[in-house]
């Protein structure tokens, strides 16, 4: 919502990850050795950190129910379940929310899952609805920051250098 706060949250997440990489207090975040190339592998295999096979299979299906593939990529194409898996906070209460929510879906067929999810989305204040909100929120946050969600689906094409900013050119929008 607040772009500054959004950045803070991103950075906070980054700091946690970074702390695992390098915990030396003098480590300068911004210093790299000359010649260091960023070691980014876009095809880096996705590895799971938290959910077991059964949970993950259900999670991936559920995220795809929330944001399915249409003429643009869906949650599964964007790897949303992996992103959620990486980000489940190391807080017991949150971890059990995910586990206790997913357990109702793991043993079901996909049509049964869809039925249960639809029912949950129409309830109010129940644990099933709270899990639905948790799932939907995490799916939305993850999907719309992937290239598939933000650029391909929504059409965002910002964060580029421009010489001038055109702004609104519609006479009908003027006061």
């Amino acid at each position: 919502m607040n772009s500054r706060r959004h950045t803070l949250i991103q950075l906070a997440g980054a700091a946690v990850a970074a702390a695992q990489v390098n915990s030396h207090p003098h480590a300068d975040a911004t210093t790299q050795q000359p010649g260091d190339k960023p070691k980014i592998d876009p095809k880096r295999p996705r590895q799971r950190q938290f959910f077991n096979d059964e949970e993950f299979e259900a999670l991936e299906t559920l995220t795809e129910f929330i944001i399915p593939r249409t003429d643009t990529p869906g949650a599964k194409d964007a790897g949303v379940a992996y992103l959620i898996d990486e980000r489940v906070p190391r807080i017991d209460r949150i971890r059990s929310l995910w586990r206790e929510g997913l357990v109702h879906y793991t043993k079901l067929s996909n049509p049964q899952r869809l039925e249960l999810l639809t029912a949950a989305s129409e309830e109010n204040g129940t644990p099933a609805r709270r899990f639905f909100d948790l799932l939907k929120g995490a799916t939305v946050d993850a999907y719309y920051e992937t290239k598939e969600g933000l650029a391909e689906e929504l059409g965002w094409h910002g964060n580029v250098a421009l010489t001038e900013f055109e702004g609104c050119t519609h006479p009908e929008h003027q006061a």
Partner: peptide
């Protein structure tokens, strides 16, 4: 070394590669 031009979807892989944004806060 600011991350002004790091797209939202590039953050994850940069972190995995051991890069970090400046810790302002």
């Amino acid at each position: 070394k600011f991350w002004s031009h790091v797209k939202p979807w590039e953050v994850r892989d940069k972190l995995a590669a051991g890069q970090r944004p400046p810790e302002f806060y």
